[in-house]
């Protein structure tokens, strides 16, 4: 009996894992599509973050990538349907923030922004959730055109 229960538990865990993988894959597809007809998908970043801890520090997912001069890139952020928090994507060159999908002073959120790159190099994107809520989101890096 215990063996059956254990097998059922393993099966349920596998099933949940598969469903989760499928739903994030679907979210990547939808998000890439929502980037627009003029954008060609390059990379996706699937982010699942916990809520901020007792210290109030919101978890941040960080990625590094090479961007090339004279290219226009589009950064798109999409929240999972069941995500508690709304994701924010910030683009950095070293320690200088170049752009963000969220302006905290106005509270305005952007689904995406384009970046006209004029310097080939390593850039960083940080993804977090507003007010340190927990959440799931997908960010898409797309190539729009060469200037």
């Amino acid at each position: 009996m215990r063996k059956i229960l254990l097998l059922e538990l393993i099966f349920a865990c596998c099933l949940i894992g598969m469903v989760n993988a499928q739903s994030t894959t679907r979210l990547v597809e939808l998000c890439a599509e929502s980037a627009g007809k003029d954008a060609t998908y390059l990379k996706d970043f699937v982010v699942q973050l916990d809520a901020a801890g007792p210290d109030g520090k919101a978890p941040v997912a960080k990625y590094s990538m090479v961007l090339s001069k004279n290219n226009v890139y589009r950064f798109t952020i999409c929240n999972a349907d069941d995500s508690e928090g709304r994701a924010v994507l910030q683009l950095f060159d070293m320690n200088v923030m170049l752009g963000s999908t969220y302006n905290p002073s106005t509270g305005k959120e952007y689904k995406s922004f384009d970046f006209q790159c004029q310097k080939t190099g390593v850039y960083h994107i940080f993804i977090s959730f507003i007010d340190g809520k927990k959440g799931t989101a997908v960010a898409i890096l797309s190539y729009v055109k060469t200037l």
């Binding site: 060609t40 590094s64 990538m65 090479v66 961007l67 090339s68 290219n71 390593v122 190539y143 060469t146």
Partner: peptide
């Protein structure tokens, strides 16, 4: 980024080489 362990390969710099961008430039 100067020291990369095997484990850190999971967090490596993305988009080091992009076929889409190279081809896009050639086409442009």
């Amino acid at each position: 980024i100067n020291e990369i362990t095997d484990q850190a390969m999971q967090k490596i710099i993305d988009n080091i080489a992009s076929p889409v961008e190279v081809a896009g430039l050639l086409k442009k």
